[in-house]
């Protein structure tokens, strides 16, 4: 923890070695989180790069990250994703090809898995940004409700309620698809 604080202090003074260390430590995780939100690898890569630009521009504002640096990163990432969808409301779901390349199972199962994922993903995009965020943090990042609450700057109870509503909505959307 002390090491982390010292590292951040150095990064705050624009120490390039410290910033490199921070980037190497957190960029893959942030990329994965953003990918889970946008389902587009190239876009996730761009937004990850943009995220760290914002980090370096705002790192002197110590108050923003003092409580939890990773929570701050998740917040910036969320804002970037929201900004992106505000500019370009239509989500571009992942292509089946991408999913095919990623798996080395038998073809039938590949297609089945990809279709199932695509279906859930499409349904996910109909949730609100906050609902998507809570699900990505809880089930994608594996954060506890408490950690999620810290990232989202909400109480644990509020996070649990939001997650409950998100799951209910998702269930409804998927059920609606099945009946239609």
């Amino acid at each position: 923890m002390t090491d982390q604080v010292a590292l951040l202090e150095r990064a705050k003074a624009y120490d390039l070695a410290a910033l490199t260390e921070l980037y190497d430590c957190y960029a893959p995780r942030m990329y994965a989180y953003i990918y889970r939100r946008v389902s587009d690898a190239a876009l996730a890569e761009d937004l990850t790069s943009e995220l760290f630009l914002r980090v370096v521009r705002a790192i002197q504002n110590e108050r923003a990250w003092r409580d939890s640096f990773i929570a701050w990163l998740y917040r910036i990432a969320h804002n970037l994703v929201v900004d992106h969808y505000r500019r370009q409301p239509l989500a571009s779901p992942i292509s089946l090809d991408e999913a095919l390349v990623a798996l080395d199972d038998d073809p039938a199962s590949i297609v089945e898995d990809a279709l199932a994922r695509d279906r859930v993903r499409t349904a996910m995009h109909r949730l609100t940004a906050r609902q998507q965020e809570v699900l990505a943090l809880r089930f994608g990042e594996g954060l506890t409700a408490r950690e999620t609450a810290r990232v989202m700057e909400k109480t644990t109870g509020a996070v649990e309620a939001l997650q409950h509503r998100a799951m209910a909505s998702l269930r409804r959307i998927l059920a609606g698809e099945e009946t239609s």
Binding site: R36, A41, A102, A116, R121, M124, F139, G140
Partner: peptide, 11 residues
């Protein structure tokens, strides 16, 4: 959801 989120292609 976990299955969906587990799949992250490399950048």
């Amino acid at each position: 959801l976990k299955k969906l989120y587990a799949h992250v292609p490399p950048p």
